[in-house]
Design a protein around this nucleic acid. Structure first.
Lengths: 198, 198
DNA sequence: AGACTAACGCAACCGAAGTTGCGTTACGAT
DNA sequence: ATCGTAACGCAACTTCGGTTGCGTTAGTCT
């Protein structure tokens, strides 16, 4: 494998192009969604020629994967309400608004869709969620300190089980996501995880 | 809205075309996956002209939605091992093999992907899962009869919570699906659902 | 059996995504 | 300041998914 474009001269124009393309990618996803996302759309919006885009990012999924890596670096507010129930409830709320918000929703959904189609995007999304799981584990760590959960509890697993039903409803079964899925379920999940002896 | 093709003369050639197209759709999805799925591929494989396909199914997602409705009608073996734990474990196994099997996996994944992009496919998938939830609820009903679960338990909710972590790992986080997700989780979910007072 | 027309087949066309060869710009090193 | 070349811009071409107009086949009704 030879060194691709953007690796030998990473400064100046190269960096500017990359920033413009990333911003345009997010804007296109927000505006047209994943179905209407096209390389040419990003080209005309960013002012970067489409030939350049194809050379550096190979295809549309590559653009999304790159934007996703950028999103993974951004900090996000891990809830800290004082109780495990409150934190998990707030966490579920964050996930829910992240996918239903008129502005951020299409982008977040596009990330998941892209990951289902492209190995590169999938790897980027997996890195993204690994990081989220790490950060969210603090919720369970605090609960353990407070004595709300046993010391051996699998931190990441509690987070996973708390949010999994939301994703299931949003992307698979299509059932409405109401208080039952956003509130009671995370609480149940926490009890379940602890009950299982993790 | 006027009556589309296939509604006035549903017999004879129309029915044969529909059957051939459905079979070709499944074969194309199995062979090329959702990313490589195209109307022309179905046309050449089925022997039905692509003009006909566009007229009756509008686009690629319409073909998938129709095939999905067909799949929803097929019976599937609801586990009956004698215990709630055993049934949920077997149920998780069915879901897992349904998505990882080399033959059926790409088709099942394509259904989920199509639903994320097309409202028609989404409705078809929702019908599909509503039916699966209905059928799988028998597992919990039997558990209640045996006294393994309280009478007020939400049958469908137990099923949802049992399989949700699998989908989460398969389509979102990309984490490996091992015994922890396929075995212990469903069991925990059942306890959690009952503990929540459903 | 015959007539009506829904449904399908066919070929040509359209448009946009993706590719290629070459010229131009500007980063980074001397 | 000058040079070499990485990275980008440009325009033309190719390919393929999707559309349209029209002719042909074959359900369905009388």
């Amino acid at each position: 494998m030879t060194t691709g474009p953007g690796t030998v001269r990473p400064g100046g124009r190269t960096a500017r192009v990359r920033a413009a393309v990333r911003e345009a990618t997010l804007a296109e996803l927000a505006g047209r969604g994943y179905a209407g996302f096209t390389v040419e759309g990003v080209a005309s919006r960013s002012g970067v020629h489409k030939t350049t885009l194809y050379r550096r990012w190979a295809n549309a999924d590559g653009l999304i994967a790159d934007a996703l890596d950028l999103a993974a670096g951004e900090p996000w507010p891990v809830p800290d309400t004082g109780t495990l129930d409150g934190d998990l409830h707030a966490l579920a709320g964050l996930v829910l608004t992240g996918f239903t918000d008129p502005e951020a929703g299409p982008v977040a959904r596009a990330f998941v869709q892209a990951a289902a189609q492209s190995p590169d995007a999938a790897r980027a999304l997996h890195r993204f969620f690994a990081r989220r799981h790490e950060q969210s584990a603090a919720i369970v760590a605090r609960a353990i300190e407070r004595g709300e959960a046993p010391a051996g509890t699998d931190r990441a697993e509690v987070v996973r089980l708390a949010v999994a039903p939301l994703y299931y409803r949003l992307f698979v079964s299509g059932e409405p996501v109401d208080e039952a899925a956003g509130g009671a379920s995370p609480r149940s999940m926490a009890r379940a995880t602890m009950a299982a002896g993790w």
